[in-house]
Design a protein around this nucleic acid. Structure first.
Lengths: 355, 355
DNA sequence: AGACTGCCTGAAAGCGTTTACAGTAGAGGC
DNA sequence: GCCTCTACTGTAAACGCTTTCAGGCAGTCT
């Protein structure tokens, strides 16, 4: 009816309802409909109501693509991460995805498989293609590359930086040092004095910070760490097993091991078990991250909880602000970590353990 | 130079390079540039080369959004799944994401958190908003809802259907029955005769099919399953523990347990250990799925491997064909499963186990 | 009464592509 | 030398929305 009236070319059935159809039905111009839809203040209440009425009736939804073309924003955000199916990155991704969905942004998912080249090319894609910005998780990019990217004016946020993050780049991480300190103090309180650290990869930000916290806790108890008891790894279970094995073979082995992530802690668990040691009776083990695996292994792992999903969400909220052109005051955010005590830690064994 | 020549309004610095800039630089019309970019045959070789030259020089990339507006396709595909950070869905998502990236499609990630309402509303969003199609993993949707969606002409593929998939709907799953049969035969070969099944949720497609395979294997050995030894669960670890505990408390307990996913198998592992039973010496346990957890628990879990990533990839390739308007011959695809023997299964204990 | 002010509204110009259609130039046929 | 045909190229109209700009119309102030 109104349709054919206003459109001499007959009823318009060319695909989906458009803003023009709504305008016709409501007897206003498309500009007005657009204004209503964008919650602009300069529309008469009556008009607004009429338009909304029609919109509801027809179940109208604006075309995202057209919107994007018109207002310059694409509504898409790149999400670069090493792996999707991963106990550590999964929850971060999940948090980010949720927040992006709420912010009405869509995702361009880019798994890099830890390959620097692939990451660089993906990143170029993201920039040159139409994304409004990106979240980079544990990026391989060097400080220079990141700064160069920023110089281009492309908005991005680093979540869980690999290296100590350069000034001026928006960055979200967990309180590594504080978490490590809590974990270590927990062991100290249980009476442990010979505490080993199975650290992550050398020079990584997370490794260095956690080491800092580890040392701080020891210092607080008036102790210096035995260099022999600190070992670096690639964060993987296998290396955890190997390194733990070395540690337990020492003439004066540790009574507790602090793994800098759950992987290596689980490795240590396995190594201890392989030697017939009981956990936590003979040796205590702490992890870091609190991934789903910590709950699955036996005994359940005492570990430092990183708010992984929250890291993702926070990253998104920073990115949103960057995209909106707000210059941020706090470019660096650190989320708190908490110790989760489970079953892999206990009082130091009285004496005469059989190494 | 060429820029200011052709544009009296001064050098154009309004954002990114457009097809028009390329046209000016190459001294042709935008239509020609578009033709070159789309590999249309009706362009003179010289012209084509000139344009490509300029495109390369400027590192030009067409604006996706504008393209979408113009040609009707959005280049976006919905990915609906219960959970992102999950040992089971993670790998499927990962495979799908990879395939989508290769097909130059972008993702709209929709975690439903297993909530039917949320799923319905997300799905409406996907359809009414601009996605070209969707992959639905383990959808909550009923058969009717799915058929209705299809009747709307919206292209979608179901990956890992919850219920027996209706005819006419594109659908990818694993060979549940065959996998279950292999697992059961493995136990039979080890001499087990009292084999319990900790099944998944009743009426689920996966549960029914696996049950089929389980029974088939027993039948092959001339046995009927003892109904007492088949229990349904919600697929979660906790229920696995409880149910396994019940089974192990029976007057005549099983010597082997087949968990219909890794979760319940791990639950059984824990339940057995809690009773002081050794795995696999006192009792054998098999899982299903081969998630990352199967490698982490002690002992490592013998389990049926589902090609999870491949499920995702296959789903995408089906969807691509649907979007291209090809009517598919094989709407239903089943990917093969294989038994992975690890350390949680062994020969049946000789006699006189202490239940 | 006339000028002004604010509030609403509509027309129209983009946004960057694709593509239908129209046009041109050169080649070949007569 | 003219016509037709082919091969290529350009013009311009979408695609569906946002937003600027220019009114129109009441009401207000002098």
């Amino acid at each position: 009816m109104a349709q054919t009236d206003t459109h001499p070319d007959g009823p318009r059935f060319r695909g989906r309802t458009t803003i023009r159809d709504i305008a016709d039905l409501a007897g206003v111009s498309i500009a007005t409909v657009s204004r209503v839809l964008n919650d602009r203040p300069d529309v008469a209440p009556n008009t607004r109501e009429t338009v909304l009425q029609v919109v509801r009736e027809r179940g109208f939804n604006r075309n995202r693509t057209a919107r994007g073309l018109s207002n310059g924003r694409t509504g898409f955000v790149g999400l670069m991460l090493p792996l999707i199916a991963d106990a550590y990155f999964g929850p971060i991704l999940s948090g980010a995805a949720e927040a992006l969905y709420e912010a009405d942004l869509r995702i361009v998912l880019c798994p890099t498989l830890h390959e620097h080249d692939r990451e660089v090319s993906l990143l170029e894609h993201l920039v040159s293609e139409s994304t409004d910005g990106a979240i980079l998780m544990l990026p391989e990019e060097s400080e220079e590359e990141l700064l160069a990217l920023q110089a281009q004016g492309y908005p991005f946020v680093v979540v869980d930086p690999r290296e100590r993050p350069p000034d001026g780049i928006a960055c979200v991480s967990a309180m590594h040092a504080s978490g490590a300190q809590q974990a270590t103090e927990h062991l100290l309180q249980l009476g442990h004095r010979r505490i080993a650290a199975i650290a992550g990869a050398e020079h990584w930000y997370a490794t260095e910070e956690r080491l800092l916290g580890f040392r701080a806790a020891l210092a607080g108890a008036g102790m210096f760490p035995d260099p022999e008891l600190i070992r670096f790894t690639d964060w993987q279970v296998q290396r955890g097993v190997e390194v733990a094995d070395e540690l337990l073979s020492l003439p004066n082995p540790p009574t507790a091991i602090f793994g800098f992530n759950d992987n290596v802690a689980i490795g240590a668990l396995n190594a201890a078990r392989a030697r017939g040691l009981r956990v936590p009776e003979d040796i205590s083990i702490v992890g870091f991250d609190d991934t789903a695996q910590a709950e699955i292994v036996t005994p359940k792992l005492t570990t430092v909880r990183q708010p992984l999903a929250e890291l993702g969400r926070t990253g998104v909220s920073l990115l949103n602000r960057l995209i909106d052109g707000q210059r941020l005051d706090a470019l660096r955010m650190e989320l708190s970590t908490t110790l989760v005590v489970r079953a892999s830690t206990g009082p130091v064994p009285q004496r005469g353990r059989n190494a």
